[in-house]
Simulated assay, not measured.
Amino acid sequence: MMYYGSFGGMHLIWWFVWMIMLFWIFATPYDIPGQRRRKDTPLNRLQKRFAAGEITTEEYQEKKKILEMDLAN
């Protein structure tokens, strides 16, 4: 039996449901546990180390300056 008037056998509502599901799967935020992860940049790692107290303010400023010069080149 051919369904010529109902969008390839699926009603219009089901097409919307599938489109929403696909959008939700591929557009989920990266910070949800168990999902895709963003790679940390060196500057992000440096900021985390500074926030955790692993390095001093002077070390942070020196390394930040070096990283920013690398990004500029």
Rank of each mutant, 00 (worst) to 15 (best):
I66P: 01
Y30I: 00
W15T: 01
E68A: 00
G5H: 00
W18D: 00
Y4L: 09
K63A: 02
H11C: 01
N44C: 15
L12Y: 02
W14V: 11
L46F: 12
P42V: 07
Q35T: 03
F50I: 13
M10N: 02
K39C: 02
R49C: 07
I66R: 02
K65F: 03
I55Q: 02
M19H: 00
T41C: 07
P33M: 03
L46K: 12
T57K: 14
L43A: 14
W15Y: 04
W24F: 09
G9A: 00
K64S: 14
T41Q: 08
N44M: 15
G34Y: 11
A51P: 08
F7T: 01
L67R: 15
T28P: 02
G34H: 04
I66E: 14
K48E: 14
W15L: 02
Q47H: 11
E54H: 13
T28C: 05
L71I: 07
T41W: 09
Q61S: 12
F26V: 09
P33C: 01
I20H: 01
M2Y: 04
H11E: 05
S6P: 00
L43V: 15
I32R: 09
H11Y: 02
E54W: 03
Y4S: 07
K65G: 10
M19T: 11
M19L: 10
V17L: 10
K63N: 12
G53P: 05
F26Q: 06
P42A: 12
T56P: 09
M21C: 15
W15M: 02
T41P: 08
T57C: 07
A27N: 08
I32S: 06
L12H: 05
E59C: 04
M10K: 10
N44E: 11
E54A: 07
M21N: 03
F7E: 00
G53N: 10
P33A: 12
E54D: 06
K39A: 13
P29E: 05
L12K: 05
D31H: 04
G53D: 15
A27S: 03
D70K: 09
I13M: 04
P29G: 06
I32P: 03
N73R: 10
A27T: 03
W14H: 03
M69Q: 13
A72Y: 08
F16G: 14
R49Y: 06
